[in-house]
Simulated scan of single mutants.
Amino acid sequence: MMNLDQGAGAAPALAPEILGYYQEGREDGRLRAGAGLLELLRTQDVLRRLLPPAPVRVLDVGGGSGVHAEWLAAAGYQVELVDPVPLHVEQAGELAGVRARLGDARALAAADDSFDVVLLLGPLYHLTDAAERAQALAEARRVLRPGGLLVAATINRFAGLHDTLNQGRWFDPERRPYIEAATRDGRVRSENPQSGFTTAYFHQPAEIVGEFTAAGLTPLGQYGVEGAGWLMGALTDWLDDPAQRKSLLDALRLTESDPALLGVSGHLLTAGRKPEAAR
């Protein structure tokens, strides 16, 4: 039986190209192999250290198909997932212990002070307008209990440049102008048919800290997810070997919060807390 919540909420206003991209159903599989698997394993690694012990209430906003919600629920957390993509909600609703519903990060259908943890592991990099990102962070703060934890993922400003260099696509003259433009202003243009992604915004590490502070959240720390590991040619072999996988994760912890290296990672996790005295 699917764990779908039909409760009322704001109808998700998602750009058609973003909805179309995720309705293709590739996101779940992306996190189970190669650099995507490293992203999954490292996100788990960081969250396991940051989250309070289960059982507490976790709201997974923009949680996709439930790749993270699944292991959190299995660990005893009370997980609710909201996502603007109907396919994702259907997939997540099949997972044991996960309640899933359509929802918009900018207008959450949840009561004030009702969750111990809010995860924003996707929404911020598809909200290209700073005002919309501010609204999503304000909503996360609103539904967090005083003292509650927010962990948000962003894509680093130079991720596209690093990835295309790594894959050799930088040398395609038709592709390069789009990469250069995204490197300058962080905006990934959906009109590029060769980008392999959709409309997005890529942050500078210090920028998201400023957005947290402006939203009334107290920043706690930042964690490069993949570090430089995602750019290594032997990555797949390392991940396939249990001993080398563990050693790789150990190595990435050594540099995960070094300010000089935060921007090397493809993704960045930023943690913050709602002040105890918040009203």
Rank of each mutant, 00 (worst) to 15 (best):
P219A: 05
E27L: 12
G148Y: 02
H162F: 14
A215L: 07
G66V: 09
G64N: 03
E207I: 05
L31W: 11
D241G: 00
A35G: 11
Y77A: 10
V151W: 01
L50H: 12
L165P: 02
Y223V: 14
A278C: 07
P146H: 02
R32P: 01
A228C: 10
D258G: 09
A110I: 07
E80Q: 15
L268W: 01
P275H: 03
Q167K: 10
A105G: 07
G93F: 03
Q222D: 03
R99Q: 12
E174P: 01
E80R: 15
A96L: 09
A159G: 09
L119V: 06
D112R: 12
P275Q: 04
R48K: 10
A200F: 04
A105L: 02
L50V: 08
T164P: 03
S257H: 06
G263A: 15
L268E: 01
V85A: 11
A251W: 10
R106S: 04
D237W: 11
A96R: 14
A35Y: 08
V118T: 04
S265N: 06
Y22W: 13
A130L: 10
W238C: 13
V225L: 08
P177G: 07
N166Y: 09
G148S: 12
L95C: 07
V56N: 13
G7V: 04
L149K: 09
V58M: 06
G97K: 10
P86V: 06
A33I: 08
A130T: 12
G229N: 07
L50M: 13
H126G: 14
W170E: 09
D113H: 07
E132R: 13
V89M: 02
T218G: 09
A33S: 10
E17H: 07
P53K: 12
L252V: 06
L121W: 00
G233N: 15
S195V: 14
R49N: 11
V85Y: 00
E180S: 15
L121T: 04
L40I: 05
G224T: 11
L19C: 12
D60Y: 02
T199L: 13
A271K: 01
P177F: 03
T236S: 15
L165I: 10
L19D: 15
G148W: 05
L217A: 13
